[in-house]
């Protein structure tokens, strides 16, 4: 330390070491060496390498962006096909429903007409039976009336005149 301070006192005589011209040559020499070394290192190694890295990165980023764009287009296309398939399926389902409905309607109509025919037949049959029953009943009434009338005549002491009775009863019933 002592030697240093004596050295300091010696060289710092102008007050500012910056103005000590005896050290200028030394500083300038080493500065030039330093700057040349840094310049050579930068131009030979550092700057080309950094420029390469930056260019490479820019390239890979633009490639990635292009790939992303591509994938996006693909996704849009896929979405379109999906939408189309969905619409097709929907239309088909509508068709099937429509067909089933028509089929059912037709089946229903034939069944109804069949049932109608059967019902009409049954009605006709029933009416026939009713007619029969009614005619039977009229005959019976005539018979009863005749026999009753004969019986009444007999009971009153009249002669059995069946022809007369028959005539009277039929005319009475017609009238």
């Amino acid at each position: 330390m002592a030697s240093n301070s004596s050295q300091a006192a010696e060289t710092a005589s102008p007050g500012m070491p910056q103005l000590d011209f005896s050290s200028f040559g030394n500083q300038i020499f080493w500065l030039v060496v330093t700057l040349v070394v840094i310049y050579v290192i930068l131009t030979r190694v550092a700057l080309p390498r950094i420029a390469d890295v930056l260019a490479e990165r820019r390239e890979s980023i633009s490639n990635d962006i292009a790939a992303a764009e591509d994938l996006k287009l693909k996704a849009v296309a896929a979405e379109e096909t999906y939408d189309k398939a969905l619409a097709d399926a929907r239309a088909e389902a509508g068709n099937i429903v429509e067909g089933a409905k028509a089929e059912m309607k037709a089946e229903l109509a034939t069944a109804i007409s069949k049932a109608d025919a059967e019902i009409a037949e049954k009605i006709v049959e029933g009416e026939k039976i009713i007619q029969e029953i009614r005619s039977n009943a009229l005959e019976s009434v005539e018979e009863v009336a005749k026999s009753t009338a004969t019986a009444i005549i007999e009971a009153l002491g009249g002669k059995d005149d069946s022809k007369f009775v028959d005539k009277a009863v039929s005319s009475e019933m017609k009238g």
Binding site: Q7, A12, P17, S23, I28, W30
Partner: peptide, 24 residues
């Protein structure tokens, strides 16, 4: 201002233009 003094790294000789100093 002592921190700015240029001095040789090795020995105590005079500061020549080629001397290895604290600047170096």
């Amino acid at each position: 201002m002592d921190q700015f003094i240029v001095k040789p790294l090795f020995g105590d000789g005079p500061v020549m233009w080629y001397t290895v100093t604290n600047v170096t």
